[in-house]
Write a protein that binds this DNA or RNA. Structure first.
Length: 1119
RNA sequence: AGUCUCGUAGCUCAGCUGGUUAGAGCACUACACUGAUAAUGUAGGGGUCGGCGGUUCAAGUCCGCCCGAGACUACCA
């Protein structure tokens, strides 16, 4: 065995990082930590794949720290924790970065650049920063298998995804339908929400808006409206071009509506209109004016300046649901169920903020519209007509034009912006329609209106909300299953699962899978031209045999493509049962499906490794962790696919961590220049301090305000203290050659203070074990810090210092070494999940000197198990007394100006309960030496000069006293000594409050002590300490002796002497000190390792102040 | 706009199922202590617990509304 390493004089975490990373690599520690564990005892973890086309940020360090902690913890718990890395390689961000790099747009793909070239470029770009990622992974100490990662663009991965899709297809959960999506007619493409969120897409535009008058059908009106004659419903729109597609009007069921009589301002005909009561004044602005009376209203002439109106009946939205009305602009009728169109329906999204409180509803051009239309009973049909091929189409084409057959508006673009430069007509369709409505007595008001509207970021032209064909997963069909399974998942924090994710599942929509893109997993569905026959491919083998079948039937020469991406896959033509050619549906699938497939696709299931899933060896995961932003992302896709395909959860526990903000709580962004570089941070402060700071400062699921000063604080306070404690230990352990060779001293045979810190340690182990098991790393780190700082360093080591450097190498000393060694070793294990490198350094330094542990790494060791037999609550209680009594004495000393080196005669403690004396006596020596006092005396109230105070215990009394609590508390505070004594002796007294009698027990009253007159007294809660501050000669000389020791020790330290060097001391002659040396010379010699202390008339050293009155020169010399 | 989270000392955070005078660390000031110490101790300043209302003997804690910050979803007549 060797000595303990003392190569580091000062804490240098980055240096330790480098050494440990090197050690791990050379000795394959990560691999061993996995492979030494039993595969049957697996802890399954899934790595959410990052995309390597961007550089890692500090928030990635946060997320991965959380993952690493629990993987390491469970490894130390004996589980086999395989961590297969992965890369997310598809998706829009990659396409966009490629397009930016090449300076092309989507329209150029297939023209300026082939799909083949484009995808090759994407594939190249996707791994652009892989090296940087690998580097941060290593440097932050994150253990993940980067040598065998899953990569979502690999054929094997795609094949597994296809298989999953085909399972959904077989269950009837895959269908083609349409939804309203943002669409850019100029670019001919749908826009993703990501694209719509590009800066500058939402702009203020001035549009022609119309409040249209919809004429109700008399027979459908409710009774209370029957006798009014013609009634119009008013509805506002900012997109008049959608009016021909109107099929319903939506009212708020709880909104109050009124019938208003007035005259149309364009035709001057008398009309009666319905709108929300709240909006009457907003809609009836100039030239309308509320009529004073019926006469004024009836006498209106068309050339009058003001148009009068009268408010008549008032009723709820609910009461007019079902009313029918004439189609406003009957250019077309819905092909499906036209009899169900043109009705008033109810919708909760209706507000009275603007418009008329009645929403013009065109299900073909509004997402909300489509939704309420579907929810109505019977369903409101969308305005779809048959085209020449017999397909149902909306009235507007994909080019953004009205269909040709629509009379005068046919063939016109719905927005003037869509016309080629210079070809736009003077009057837009919106204006044309408005004029037509005015003439036909169908327009109540036409005006310009400025509002915010999204624009296509490529073409700068307004976006159209348009129904687009898409493939969907019918997730709504499995909604109940997903909700049920979600209840079994352990969410950290719980509310993310119950509330955020739970609500999301409750309001689940079908999953739109389609993306009209190039770089992604192609949809494995082939269809005949008329869509009557289709096939969903589930594997390469099936594709291969289908190709052969098609070759045979259709006489083709196709071969299986090497790459399953576009464009190769698009060239494959398959054959239907009836011998018709089938082409692939050109869409790609949503990349979120890629990542949600990883539990299976990472193993190329089911083509390989079937047991991993089927026998539950690697499914579901015990634990996953990502940012909260993944709640509706990866957390959902994993859950959805597992629920729908396997009727299982995909993970048992999920930790969703919050964001990393800058120190002011602002999101980090390149623009603001407040981005923290993770490499720089780790290089400066070390990975462990960074990790520990992130975990201990805030719960992982709270947002972290990242402040570099906080890391420094952790370095100083936690790692610095721990390092110093280690250094203290080895300083003496090396001198005494303590290598834990002696027999283990049974804990019961060790001194009080050793048993105390061991008791504390075992409680700590228990707590940390529980916290890590509960996925509460923040609590674990905070408790470890408190132990190291408060208890180990500032109490145990401080009080035990002398045991290490004084006296024989005997049982007491060995007990001290064993105790401190065990504490340090256990701390290294407890800290290992969070601070993997420093703890490794500590563990190996300790262990290489003693060889007590067989493991070459702390990460191969077992996590400590608390030994509750070694805990002692009474002991912890009395040590708490000792600490508090000492603290009170310090405080009194400070008040009266006696430094601690001046011994004082005694303290007096009032007895607070019968066992108090025994408790304090057990720790008496510690108190006496800590505060430099000669003895402790106890007094009871029989001496008569302490006064007891009483105070109500609100917690116990509150329930029984109820209303009388306040008065009761006042009465209890007034108890005199006799009453308190009676309570203590009898154990119960009765108290009458406001005429009601209660019995009071000692539990209900808290008793404390008042100041003792004539003494220096300090109080800490229930503990009162009185200090005797009188000095006699003996105390004064002892005080001087201690001062001398202190000065000489300082000189030794300044002279850079070794702690074992012997010295001789010469003091300048001084009468008082000569007496001190006579009494305490031996003591001083022992303390400062002096062979001799002599006086001389003249000493040529600097004068030193011993006390206020005494200054002498002191000389020391090494012997 | 909706859903969810958060708001406690200058800063970072504790505060258990409601209970006495709301705590800790950092920072600041002063004084001590130290043969492990970039450590520590003692004392001090600093809080209408985001605001208003309610329930209760009692509210930082429970309920309602509002304000502010953030995330996600949606984007509307």
């Amino acid at each position: 065995m060797a000595a303990y390493s003392d190569s580091l004089k000062q804490l240098d975490l980055p240096l330790i990082d480098a050494q440990i990373l090197d050690f791990w690599q050379k000795n394959d520690i990560f691999k061993k930590s996995v492979e030494q564990k039993d595969p049957k005892n697996a802890f399954v973890f899934y790595e959410g794949p990052p995309s390597a086309n961007g550089k890692p940020g500090i928030h990635h360090v946060m997320g991965r720290t959380v993952k690493d902690i629990f993987c390491r913890f469970h490894t130390m718990q004996g589980r086999r924790v395989e961590r297969k890395g992965g890369w997310d390689t598809h998706g829009l961000p990659i396409e966009l970065s490629v397009e930016k790099e090449l300076g092309i747009t989507k329209e150029d793909i297939g023209n300026k650049i082939t799909v083949d070239e484009y995808n090759a470029k994407c594939k190249e770009t996707v791994m652009q920063y892989k090296d940087v990622w690998d580097d941060i992974t290593r440097k932050m100490g994150y253990w993940v298998d980067l040598d065998h990662p899953y990569i979502t663009f690999k054929n094997e991965y795609i094949e597994s995804v296809w298989w999953l899709l085909s399972q959904l297809y077989k269950k009837g959960l895959l269908y083609k339908g349409y939804t309203i999506q943002p669409y850019s007619p100029a670019a001919g493409t749908g826009l993703s929400s990501h694209e719509l969120n590009q800066p500058g897409t939402y702009r203020d535009v001035s549009d022609t808006t119309v409040i249209a008058q919809f004429l109700t059908i008399h027979e459908s009106l409710p009774q209370f409206l029957e006798h009014y004659g013609d009634i119009h419903i008013l509805a506002w729109t900012t997109t008049p071009w959608t009016l021909p597609s109107n099929t319903a009007l939506t009212v708020g069921p709880d909104i109050e509506y009124v019938l208003v009589k007035t005259y149309n301002q364009y035709t001057f005909r008398p009309i009666q209109v319905i709108l929300a009561k709240e909006l009457v004044s907003k809609v009836f602005t100039n030239p309308f004016r509320l009529a004073e009376n019926q006469e004024e209203f009836l006498s209106y002439q068309k050339d009058q300046k003001f148009i009068p109106y009268l408010v008549d009946a008032s009723f709820s939205g609910e009461s007019i649901i079902g009313v029918r009305y004439e189609p406003l602009l009957p250019y077309a009728t819905p092909y499906e169920n036209p009899q169900n169109a043109f009705r008033v329906i109810g919708g909760n999204f209706v507000t009275t903020e603007d418009g008329t409180g009645i929403v013009h509803t065109a299900p073909t051009f509004g997402a909300d519209d489509a939704k309420v239309a579907k929810e109505a009973h019977p369903e409101i049909p969308p305005m779809l007509v048959k085209d020449q091929h017999g397909n149902l189409v909306p009235l507007v084409t994909l080019q953004g034009k009205f269909r040709d057959e629509l009379d005068e508006i046919g063939g016109k673009y719905v927005k003037n912006e869509y016309y080629p430069e210079g070809q736009a007509p003077e009057k837009s369709v919106d204006v044309e329609i408005s004029i037509k409505l005015k003439i036909e007595n169908k327009a109540f008001k036409v005006e310009k209106y400025v509002h915010n509207y999204p624009h296509c970021w490529r073409t700068d032209k307004p976006v159209l909300y348009y129904p687009l064909d898409s493939w969907f997963i019918r997730s709504t069909a499995m909604k109940d299953k997903m909700i049920e399974l979600n209840k079994t998942i352990n969410w950290k924090p719980a509310h993310t699962g119950e509330k955020r994710f739970g609500n999301w599942l409750e309001n689940l929509n079908d999953w739109n899978l389609s993306r009209s893109r190039y770089w992604g997993i192609p949809l494995p569905i082939w269809r005949t031209e008329n869509a009557s026959e289709e096939i969903c491919i589930d594997s390469m083998a099936q594709l291969n045999s289908e190709i052969e079948k098609a070759n045979e039937t259709l006489g083709l020469q196709q071969v299986m493509p090497d790459d399953l991406h576009r464009p190769y896959i698009d060239e494959i033509i398959l054959v239907s049962k009836n011998g018709k050619p089938m082409k692939r549906e050109t869409d790609l699938i949503d990349v979120w499906f890629d990542s949600g497939s990883m539990p299976y696709a990472q193993w190329h299931y089911p083509m390989e490794h079937q047991s991993y899933i089927d026998q539950g060896l690697k499914f579901p995961a015990d634990f996953i962790a990502e940012g909260v932003d993944q709640t509706r992302g990866w957390f959902f896709t994993l859950h959805a696919i597992a629920s729908m395909v396997f009727e299982s959860v995909a993970y048992k526990t999920v930790v969703s961590n919050g964001l990393v903000l800058d120190k002011n709580g602002v999101k980090m962004s390149k623009r603001l220049g407040n981005v923290i570089d993770p490499f720089e941070t780790i290089a400066t402060y070390g990975a462990d301090a960074t990790r520990w700071y992130m975990i201990s400062n805030a719960q992982p699921w709270d947002n972290l305000k990242f402040d570099l000063e906080g890391i420094d604080e952790i370095r100083r306070k936690f790692f610095g203290t721990l390092f110093n404690t280690y250094n203290f230990f080895i300083l003496y352990a090396n001198i005494d050659a303590f290598q834990y060779k002696e027999d283990y001293i049974h804990v019961s045979e060790r001194p009080e203070i050793d048993r105390w810190i061991i008791s504390k340690l075992n409680h700590l182990i228990q707590d940390v074990q529980d916290d890590f098991s509960d996925y509460e790393p923040t609590n674990a780190t905070r408790k470890i810090m408190e132990f190291v700082d408060e208890h180990l360093s500032n109490w145990y080591v401080r009080l035990c210092r002398r045991r290490f450097w004084k006296g024989e190498y005997g049982l007491d000393k060995i007990a001290a070494y064993q105790t401190l060694y065990d504490c340090l070793l256990n701390i290294s294990k407890l800290s290992a999940p969070v601070a993997p490198m420093f703890s490794e350094w500590l563990y190996n330094n300790l262990n290489s000197a003693t060889g007590r542990e067989v493991h070459e790494s702390v990460h191969l060791a077992d996590f400590p198990v608390a030994n509750l037999k070694e805990t002692d609550d009474a002991l912890e209680q009395r040590m708490d007394y000792a600490q508090r009594i000492s603290s009170v004495v310090h405080s009194i000393r400070k008040k009266v100006g006696h430094r601690v080196r001046q011994p004082l005669a005694k303290i007096i403690l009032p007895i607070i309960h019968p066992s108090f004396i025994d408790q304090v006596e057990a720790v008496k020596e510690l108190i006496l030496s800590e505060v430099n006092i000669k003895k402790i005396e106890y007094i009871t109230d029989t001496e008569g000069f302490i006064k007891k105070k009483s105070k109500a215990n609100f917690k116990t009394l509150g329930k029984s006293l109820g209303k009388n609590m306040k008065d009761g508390a006042a009465m209890i505070a007034e108890f005199d000594q006799a009453k308190i004594n009676e309570l203590e002796k009898k154990g119960v007294i009765s108290l009458t409050i406001n005429g009601e009698a209660y019995s009071i027990t000692p539990e209900d009253v808290e008793i404390s002590f008042d100041n003792i007159p004539g003494w220096q007294v300090g109080i800490d809660k229930d503990i009162t300490v009185a200090l005797d501050i009188s000095l006699d000669d003996a105390l004064i000389h002892e005080g001087l002796a201690k001062e001398l020791v202190n000065r000489i020790q300082n000189m030794r330290k300044n002279a850079d002497l070794n702690v074992t060097d012997k010295i001789s001391v010469v003091l300048e002659k001084h009468d008082v000190l000569e007496e001190t040396i006579r009494q305490f010379g031996d003591y001083i010699k022992q303390e400062v390792l002096a062979e001799t202390i002599t006086f001389a008339g003249q000493v040529n050293d600097e004068k030193v102040e011993i006390s206020d009155e005494i200054q002498i020169a002191i000389g020391i010399a090494k012997i």
